[in-house]
Every structure is written in structure tokens, then in C-alpha cells.
Simulated scan of single mutants.
Amino acid sequence: MAVEAIDQFMNISRGTVFVRTWRPEEASKVPIVLLHDSLGSVELWRDFPEALAAATGRSVIAYDRLGFGKSSIRTDPAVPEFVDDEARTYFPAIVKSLGLSQYVLFGHSVGGGMALASASISGDSCVAVITESAQAFVEERTLSGIRAAKQSFENEAQLSRLSKWHGERARWVLEAWTEVWLSPRFREWSLDHYLGKVICPVLAIHGDSDEFGSSEFPHRITQGVSGPARMKILNECGHVPHREKEADVLSLVCSFLFENQVP
């Protein structure tokens, strides 16, 4: 199936956001919106959005959060409430600018947490959520992985590779991840106060070898939401299933959407 990619910039209250839409021929179903991880961007999704659009027959939309990728630079330090801010302020502005009345959310890592938080306050607009490697609370395994990553980025060559995707934003992007997650104020963070308000179907995908979190995360998610929920643990898979096990992820998503009769 042929898929067309369309780029645009949207002005919201705090700056300009870069958005890319992959649109298959004759797409008529509710679109899928991708929410990236802590170091992610539109470009770092690589070929997955096009493959997802072709497999599902749905438009797939991804955007760079403010401070990331090609969106406006941020200089203010990230705050522990950044997941809440995305769900309550920035994502609704994107939805309004795109004119979306309904959507499916697909979030990777912290983007999965943002997807669930957004779904909990969106009413009937969010018709399904797919989380991939999403954190549900602060686990020591997560902190250990972040500490190791922070140490690796002390190597300038490693930071330069991050700059490929974020340009002069790279240092801010890195610290927005490491300094918030490792701060004492963030230790009590969890999705618990959002989960019970998620009424749409939820699919929680997790790798058995995820270096940033155990299977306790998808367990907490699927047991906590109010709508129908399914968990899938992928064998021999780390933190990025859509890259490591793309065919499995595409198959899971298509089956999930079909079984739950997502419009």
C-alpha cells in the first residue's frame, strides 16, 4: 500500500511543533498518533510509522514535543510534572490544531505514560491506547538504566550522535530525561491516578529484556485501567520493540484494533 508522508509546523502557545503524517491511500479510519520516548523525535521513529500506516490502513501522525527534534528550542529546565503537562496542555493543543475528533494513541516509553494520561482526560476522543515499554511508576531498574545512560553520554561522541536528531537541543533533551527521573522529587511518580479513568481498550507491549523496566509496568497498566486490556511480553526483546520486533508489534497492533472493533 502506497503511503504519503506530509510535514508541517504548527504554532501552539509555547512555540512551534513539527508534525509528520503518513497517509495511506483511502485512509478512512481513526488515525494513530505516536508519542515518542525521552530521547525521541519524529525522525527516530524511522520506518516504523510508514509500516504501521500500511499495515493498519490508518493515517499515522507523529510530532516532536517542544524542545525535541525540529520543534521550538526550550531553555527552561524540565519539571517533574512533565507527563501531566503534556497530557493536559500540549497534546490537547496538537489535537486542536490537527482538527482531530477521535484518535488512537501509541506511546513508546514515557510516551506510553503520556498516552495513558491523555486518554484518561480525553473522554470519547481517544478510542484506544497502545503502550510500548511504558513506565508506570519509578522502579530501581529504570533508575539504574538511566544512570548507566547518563554515564555513557559523558562521552562527547555519544552526545554528538544525539545531536544528529536534536541539534543544539541535545543537551537539554538529555538533561530533561536524566535529571528529572533521577531527582528525589520524582521518586513517588506513578500513573496510578490516571489509570482508573482510562475507559478505552488498552494494549501494553513490553520486552522481557527491557533495560529500563520490568514486566511489573504492563501488569500495573492492564490491571489498573477500567477498559478492556491486554498485555503482551515479547521474548528476547529490549526497550524498543518497534525496532527489535517490528513484525510482531505490527501484528499485535492490527489484531488488537480489529478485535476491539476500533473505528
Rank of each mutant, 00 (worst) to 15 (best):
Ala27Gln: 03
Ala27Val: 01
Ser28Val: 12
Pro31Arg: 03
Pro31Tyr: 05
Pro31Cys: 06
Pro31Ala: 05
Ile32Val: 14
Ile32Cys: 10
Val33His: 01
Val33Ile: 05
Val33Gln: 01
Leu34Tyr: 00
Leu34Trp: 00
Leu35Phe: 02
His36Glu: 02
Asp37Arg: 01
Leu39Val: 04
Val42Cys: 09
Val42Gln: 08
Glu43Gln: 11
Glu43Met: 03
Glu43Asp: 15
Trp45Gly: 04
Arg46Tyr: 10
Arg46His: 07
Asp47Gln: 04
Asp47Val: 07
Asp47Trp: 02
Asp47Phe: 10
Phe48Val: 07
Pro49Glu: 04
Glu50Arg: 08
Ala51Trp: 01
Leu52His: 01
Ala55Met: 12
Gly57Val: 12
Ser59Thr: 00
Val60Arg: 10
Val60Glu: 08
Ile61Gln: 00
Ile61Phe: 07
Ile61Asp: 00
Tyr63Pro: 11
Tyr63Arg: 12
Leu66His: 06
Gly67Phe: 01
Ser71Met: 08
Ser72Gln: 01
Ser72Lys: 03
Ser72Glu: 03
Ile73Arg: 14
Ile73Gly: 01
Arg74Gly: 06
Thr75Leu: 14
Thr75Lys: 13
Asp76Ser: 14
Asp76Thr: 15
Asp76Met: 11
Asp76Lys: 15
Pro77Trp: 12
Pro77Asn: 13
Pro77Lys: 15
Pro77Cys: 13
Ala78Cys: 15
Val79Thr: 15
Val79Cys: 14
Val79Asn: 10
Pro80Gly: 08
Glu81Gln: 13
Val83Asp: 10
Val83Ile: 15
Asp84Ser: 11
Asp84Ala: 11
Asp84Tyr: 08
Asp84Met: 07
Asp85Met: 06
Glu86Asp: 11
Arg88Gln: 15
Thr89Ile: 12
Thr89Leu: 06
Tyr90Val: 09
Phe91Pro: 04
Phe91Ser: 07
Phe91Leu: 10
Pro92His: 14
Ala93Met: 09
Ile94Val: 14
Val95Tyr: 04
Val95Arg: 13
Val95Trp: 02
Lys96Glu: 15
Ser97Cys: 06
Ser97Tyr: 02
Ser97Lys: 11
Leu98Cys: 13
Leu98Arg: 10
Leu98Tyr: 08
Gly99Met: 14
Gly99Phe: 14
Gly99Ile: 11
Leu100Trp: 13
Ser101His: 12
Ser101Cys: 12
